[in-house]
Design a protein around this nucleic acid. Structure first.
Lengths: 148, 148
DNA sequence: TAGTGAGTTGGAGTGCACTCCAGGCAAGCG
DNA sequence: CGCTTGCCTGGAGTGCACTCCAACTCACTA
């Protein structure tokens, strides 16, 4: 992968060590060990290496990748798209244009979502204000509602 | 339901008519007719009335309700929570405090989500900038990447 | 040396939110 | 009259993203 496929910001890592067990990574990334193995099976991880006994040993690079995946996941990118992205990263630099396209289109999605959320926030504020008034005026039961 | 359970803003309605068929409502709300029937089955609709032949006839009030449901849905409120809300609305005004609680807690969720999306947007901007540079520098294939 | 705890696998199961299907009814049209 | 269109029902099926299971290995401690 290219240098830009590691996250730009660093988050606190368990220790200064450079190889992590699956449960350490699960804790760090907020995913279950199951999910980490599943990510690997479906091709969402860039080949995790193993200890001499066959246990997974994640590197800081893997943690960086998981940071990015976590961000994309939180913003609702489908797993299939993330896998496509991961594949492109593995395929090398001739895929940068497509990667750019994928990321840009996702960015548009995210922008749209922010706008949607914002507009819902307005509706919620309005309704919460109304309910607040209602609760402030008569908190006790025993009156009839105008409609319903 | 109370007056505040209709949406504060009006959106364009199919026609000035006051009773709509399921497919008109599907078009309007951006849901399938299947989904509208399903909403009713699970108790997410406040009793839709019927024509003399048993077909659903939605009112403007139903459309208002669907506006709200659509907003909540877009902001990721689980259907189960929306059903709880709908039940409370049906139960009458003694549930306003709980409704307020539910809405307020959802508002916090939405605020958190906006912040998350915003932070992802920053990451995306950063990566897209890097990819942009890369594409600007060498759009043709045939070179080796620094890593992988 | 036996037990505990953390890891391994492939495959099956879960929960959510739809989505579709088969079979049927009612209205309108040529 | 037959045909098409739109709607009805209960129940089954789908896709996504996990989530768990059974059966196993390995390292460590009492």
């Amino acid at each position: 992968m290219t240098v830009i496929d590691s996250a730009p910001v660093r988050t606190a890592r368990p220790e200064g060590r450079e190889r992590y067990t699956i449960s350490e990574v699960a804790d760090y990334a907020g995913l279950s060990a199951h999910t980490l193995r599943w990510y690997e099976r479906i091709g969402l991880m860039p080949h995790v290496d193993r200890s001499h006994t066959g246990q997974r040993r994640y590197t800081d690079r893997d943690l960086d990748w998981l940071d990015l995946v976590g961000k994309l996941r939180l913003t609702g990118m489908p797993v299939a798209d993330m896998v496509r992205y991961a594949e492109m990263v593995r395929e090398g630099d001739h895929t940068v244009v497509d990667r750019l396209r994928l990321l840009s289109s996702h960015r548009e999605d995210v922008r749209r979502r922010i706008a949607e959320l914002q507009s819902t926030l307005d509706v919620l504020d309005y309704k919460i204000d109304r309910y607040g008034e209602l609760c402030g005026l008569h908190t006790s039961p025993g009156f009839t509602s105008p409609d319903s």
